[in-house]
Nucleic acid binder design. Structure first.
Lengths: 341, 341
DNA sequence: ATGAAAGCGCTAACAG
DNA sequence: CTGTTAGCGCTTTCAT
């Protein structure tokens, strides 16, 4: 990219207004000690020349960017897209803009180091850690404001806002069991039982069964990724293998969407033949037909906490102990599950 | 934010490795003319000190950031979130990262000037112009690579990738009329007939009626925003006012989602009593029950074109005439509409 | 209330 | 193959 034509700099404005660059800077940043007449002259020159601050230069010199980053595994997952919207509203109220980028699927070779150096471009960072190795997180300079979000319960030196995965999954499963289900398929279960989201939700699934005294058939746990297609395939797989089930706990609403389609294709009625519940309470859930029962993981509380913690770091410096907040999960009962009798 | 602890700079690495900063720079950027031994020493020092490039400095000096921006009205709209995913894949293949930010809903006072200066932080910009005044676009320095996307057909000095709104809407409506519908409600129609997306789609709706020799009842056009709730309310409003309709053309799939829910609440069966078709072919469409018929606005073609045009500008400089590409719209017939007999 | 000087951390251009 | 010089456009500091 060449700067073929004119790139108006602060010096140009200063010259045109017959002042120093410092005065221009003061006007632009609304600093008090500038005469009214001078200010007018500078503003005129600015709009005259069509000047715009060079944020790279400002950033280099001043250190701040006015931008917070939101780094998520995938841009198109409704949960993250909707989180982004909530955070954007809130940060804008603090005079900060938010930009969203994805961490997942970065090419091999452009290692996480690249990602992490990019993240330093921000005044603060909201980071959804899902797949990435916690060890890599130490790459982040610990003096820049970071709030972790999401599921993984990692002992960390960062502020961390989590959803209550275990309890949410327990509520979802308990609801199915309370309405008569006895063979609850779990879609998304992941065999490597670390402390990641699938494991936590699987734990809740287990707890509910224990509480209800219902045994778990391991065949009802279907490992899949968190896409609609995978949810669809998971149900197909159960049906094709002749594994009976009377309810489905999908580890995310997106997976539930796929499951619902597969059930319809198999002429299984929801909720009469098979109940379905998801997790995340995405915006689409209440509009599905039948409306999707789900677990609201405390969207508003999480967004509020994230912003509060990050703003505290940005304004107050390193501050004290890292906080770890857990938002409450709430069962949202809709048409894909039967009412409790 | 204070740089309380150590901020490792390139000079530190150079000192520690016993070379000049230039050599460090050469190593980091993979430039060829560096001895193998030196390279090793530098890399060791880098990982030793935990050095990370300061992108602000690089940007200021080199002019490039390795980042393209995607500016959209709202982060949570599925169409944009899914577009972002497609673009991210493609740009990464060119060694560029993509970040997404929203243009809509910026606070009054922090004018568009702020937005536009931010956008200069990118090597290139993909800009979805929907509501913003074309006049403001001139704020963008015309020497920085920009590709406009979306609907509005504005004569512009920028590369512009559009979907074929008129023809897509015509196909959608024609399909409904061909399958026997005679009173097609249009959801999202906007009375101010400028060249924006609702107007273009409304135009296609009109064309199809003319072609089929079916008159349009203006009462069937319901103005609404592009949210599920508005789609829901629009259908309710028709029903409450006793306006009969046998099909619905929702100007976006999101609106269709709301409409489907409202129809279900009114015990109107889809597609037996009322057919429904949307526009955008969002990822969720095939998974709904019944699956949502829609217009695929040429997702892949658009993404390919956007990337090609932007890369051409980034690599080739201002280049020649601004291009204007229109992706072909395709009818995707699914379960919410009846097959043509 | 305004200005002069210095330099943030990096890289382009040239020397050696 | 490696180093030197200069400076990107802004803001901090200190002077006036």
């Amino acid at each position: 990219m060449k700067k073929g034509t004119t790139v108006v700099t602060m010096a140009d404005v200063a010259r045109s207004a017959g002042v120093s660059t410092m005065t221009v800077s003061n006007v632009i940043n609304g600093r008090p000690r500038v005469g009214a007449a001078t200010r007018e002259r500078v503003l005129a020159a600015i709009s005259d020349l069509g000047y715009q601050v060079n944020l790279a230069a400002r950033h280099l010199r001043a250190g701040r960017t006015g931008v917070v980053g939101l780094a998520v595994p995938e841009l198109e997952r409704p949960y993250f897209a909707q989180l982004a919207g909530r955070l954007a509203d809130r940060f804008e109220a603090h005079g900060l803009r938010i930009v969203m980028e994805r961490t997942g699927a970065s090419r091999e070779g452009e290692a996480d180091a690249v990602v992490f150096s990019r993240l330093r471009m921000y005044d603060g960072l909201v980071l959804s850690v899902v797949d990435s190795d916690p060890a890599e997180l130490t790459q982040l300079r610990n003096d820049s404001p970071v709030v972790m979000i999401g599921e993984r319960a990692l002992p960390s030196k960062y502020d961390h806002v989590m959803m209550d995965n275990v309890d949410g999954a327990r509520q979802a499963t308990a609801h199915l069991l309370a309405t008569g289900a006895r063979r609850v398929a779990m879609l998304g279960g992941n065999p490597d039982w670390t402390a990641n989201m699938p494991a936590l939700r699987a734990q809740g699934y287990g707890l509910a069964h224990t509480d209800a005294g219902v045994p778990i058939d391991p065949e009802l746990t279907v490992r899949c990724h968190f896409t609609m297609q995978d949810g669809y395939d998971a149900i197909r797989s159960l049906i094709d293998r002749g594994i009976a089930f009377d309810a489905v706990f999908a580890l995310t609403d997106v997976v539930a969407l796929g499951a619902l389609r597969a059930l319809a294709d198999a002429n299984l009625r929801v909720p009469e033949h098979v109940q379905v519940i998801g997790f995340d309470d995405i915006d689409e859930a209440p509009y599905l037909v039948p409306a999707l029962s789900s677990i609201n993981p405390g969207h508003e509380e999480m967004a509020d906490s994230i912003v509060a913690l990050l703003m505290a770091q940005i304004n107050g410096g390193p501050g004290g102990e890292p906080q770890e907040l857990i938002a409450p999960a709430r069962l949202i009962q809709r048409g894909t599950t039967k009412p409790v009798v």
